[in-house]
């Protein structure tokens, strides 16, 4: 499974989100590739799942794959609750 963590530049908040997602995957005993991407290239990259903020989620959701909007990207509890539906 490949998960894309998306932010504006692919360098700031997406890296924090990637850390949170990886931590959650570990807690859930799941393995997945988590990569960061910037908003402008995210749509063209292959992925099974996208995690991002609320603004980008609306724009990236083209119906082809699940897009999860996270309010607090460092909150592993929130990420776990939203991710658990799709992994495992």
């Amino acid at each position: 499974m490949k998960i894309l963590a998306v932010c504006g530049m692919g360098f700031g908040s997406s890296m924090m989100l990637k850390m949170t997602v990886e931590q959650v995957l570990k807690e859930l005993n799941q393995v997945a590739d988590v990569e960061t991407a910037d908003f402008s290239t995210a749509a063209s990259l292959p992925a099974d799942l996208i995690v991002t903020n609320e603004e980008f989620a609306k724009q990236l959701d083209d119906g082809s794959k699940p897009v999860i909007a996270i309010e607090n990207i460092a909150d592993s509890q929130e990420v776990k609750e939203k991710l658990i539906v799709y992994v495992g």
């Binding site: 504006g8 530049m9 360098f11 700031g12 924090m16 908003f39 309010e71």
Partner: peptide, 22 residues
Amino acid sequence: ETVHTLGPYIVIAPGVALPHAR
């Protein structure tokens, strides 16, 4: 400029902004 271009996505948690550039 990043905020002007990309919008308020630097708000990374409720009440917390992470301004940065490259």
